[in-house]
Design a protein around this nucleic acid. Structure first.
Lengths: 341, 341
DNA sequence: TTGAAAGCGGTACCAC
DNA sequence: GTGGTACCGCTTTCAA
């Protein structure tokens, strides 16, 4: 069933039926009711391909996910972010086009996407400190929103987690519990978020007159192996930490394994707080770590990013929007006071 | 730049340019070369919206992911499956439309998708034993491929992991190592895959004249908490297991925590094999569990599913295709011989 | 308040 | 081998 047939069945013109269906005010209410009823009865839905061509809008938003060594896609934060964003897209009538690109293919992917007009805008995730995607998208004149930010965060729209505050708060929390040797297992220094998180950590220490201990800080790709190996080394070394701050839940899993092997009980002998609680299977109910961000805050960030991007698409000439996103500190049973020295 | 302009610039008709670009044979090679060069120079790409309308094909495949309590989307197997499928879609010129639906909204979502023709086919994942989606998609006449299968697996196309064989092989492996009390922490019995995995496990035991021990079998939603709590109970109970088979890597994480708390060293005091190695952070290099499936096999399954679905879209009248997908057993340092009793 | 008709940007049939 | 042209199914001006 298409518009033409529906109109014919109603003895109305396509125009009127289209207007009735799309809520234009100039249609008589009685007519509109008839049309709506008939459309429903016939299970009519406007053909999206035709509509897209006619309106010139794709009603689609692209998420272009780079499959780098960091295995973005597998990072579970993506799932929750997608869920949040998808919720808003669905509500606003947008489709979500997911495209995964390997390594440096993202330029080609964006050019393609821009040239054939398959999306109205794109979401950019996990930006590097200097990220070529920003300039490219500006050049292509494709509306985009960045989750996170680059080193120079001016001139484009982004939403970023308030990383400094999150890690400052988490560090403060551990300091309040009496911990003094707090390890920071962070992501690669090349990322803006890692630098900010370190700053939050250092600021909290400095506020109490403490110096960060170099042997208690490590940076690398956020894998379980990294968490395990560096936690193990720190625990076996001199001046072992009594608490860990992890930049990712994945790192925390590794920390937990290292602790387990040494008979260290989380929340009693050792405390762990990690960022990115995206995995419900690390739930606090049964003794998971504490989190500087919760699943729901990641989802909420996804929602907000989607809203901002849609705004941008609807009004591409608005000035850049830049938002900091606050996360909650959730404390689980794996975080406790510092054991007496 | 659109086709009309490109044609004008070349002093050719739209028809010829279109044909040249789309590889039709009747174009003179010299003309084709000219067209191709001009298109490249002008950075021309056919407008996908127009093309879709004209051809009647959406060149898009839908992945409709239910956000049930099982939190499908967060289950990391989805990421790898998507990556594999996305690879094939990209190669074949298809877009991937991701739509997440809450609970029972999937019927509405499918009807919508079918009525407005935004996709050419859909991928169905994690089917229930009896799954209403199958009948619905048949009724809507929308090509679809199921990853997994329902209780009655006739009459539609699917690709399923060879669950029975995978778990039989894993159980055999542990038996060969001398283990006799092997626990099975499985998914909810309501799923076909859980039943098959149990069958593989039981068959392997039976082949050696062993009976499955009820107190070493548990079923539930595959969370870390489930793994942790049931492993803890089993380890603390009478006749504790010397090895675990887990239906998901997430469960294995829970098992590992329970073992760690009890000072049990994986690979020495206790062995673990789990299905679904989707998380690189559980890598074997540093002592992760063994796996009945590897990341690459999940990805490969995604690729194969995509290929089958595209075949189905291109020739919707072909008889149902049904494939079993073999996985590899990968053994890590967490699996070792049974400690002497 | 309604309708006729011209796009939107391609594809593909038919004629030359 | 190339070109004219009628679609694809909807939106949107313009006229009535």
């Amino acid at each position: 069933m298409n518009l033409k047939e529906l109109a014919a069945a109603l003895n109305l013109s396509q125009t009127t039926v289209s207007r009735a269906l799309n809520g234009y005010p100039e249609v008589r209410e009685e007519t509109r009711a008839r049309v709506l009823a008939a459309a429903k009865a016939a299970n009519y839905a406007p053909n999206s391909r035709a509509r897209r061509l006619a309106t010139g809008r794709a009603m689609t938003i692209g998420h272009v996910i780079p499959l780098t060594g960091r295995a973005e896609m597998v990072n579970p934060i993506f799932a929750d972010f997608l869920i949040g964003a998808g919720e808003v897209y669905a509500r606003e009538g947008y489709d979500l086009l997911l495209s995964m690109v390997t390594d440096g293919d993202s330029e080609a992917a964006f050019r393609q996407i821009a040239a054939n007009g398959s999306v109205d805008g794109v979401m950019v995730q996990a930006p590097q400190i200097t990220d070529p995607r920003i300039g490219l998208l500006q050049e292509l004149d494709l509306p985009f929103l960045v989750h996170g930010r680059t080193g120079d965060a001016r001139g484009y729209s982004w939403l970023d987690i308030a990383n400094i505050r999150a890690f400052r708060r988490a560090t403060d929390f551990l300091l309040d519990l009496g911990h003094r040797r707090i390890a920071l297992l962070n992501g690669q220094e090349g990322f803006d978020f890692a630098q900010r998180r370190r700053r939050g950590y250092e600021e909290a220490l400095a506020a109490r007159g403490l110096c960060p201990l170099p042997h208690l800080m490590a940076n690398d790709a956020m894998t379980e192996g990294f968490g395990y190996l560096s936690a193990a080394a720190m625990l076996d070394g001199p001046e072992p930490p009594t608490a860990f701050l992890a930049s990712s839940v994945i790192i925390a899993i590794g920390i937990r394994r290292a602790c387990g092997e040494r008979g260290l009980r989380m929340g009693r002998d050792i405390s762990v707080i990690c960022h990115d609680d995206e995995l419900s299977y690390l739930n606090n109910d049964v003794g998971g770590p504490a989190f500087t961000a919760t699943r729901s805050s990641i989802r909420a960030a996804g929602r907000r990013c989607a809203e901002l991007l849609i705004d941008l698409i609807r009004d591409p000439d608005q000035p850049p929007v830049q938002e900091l996103w606050e996360t909650d500190l959730t404390v689980g049973r794996s975080t406790g006071p510092c054991p007496a020295a």
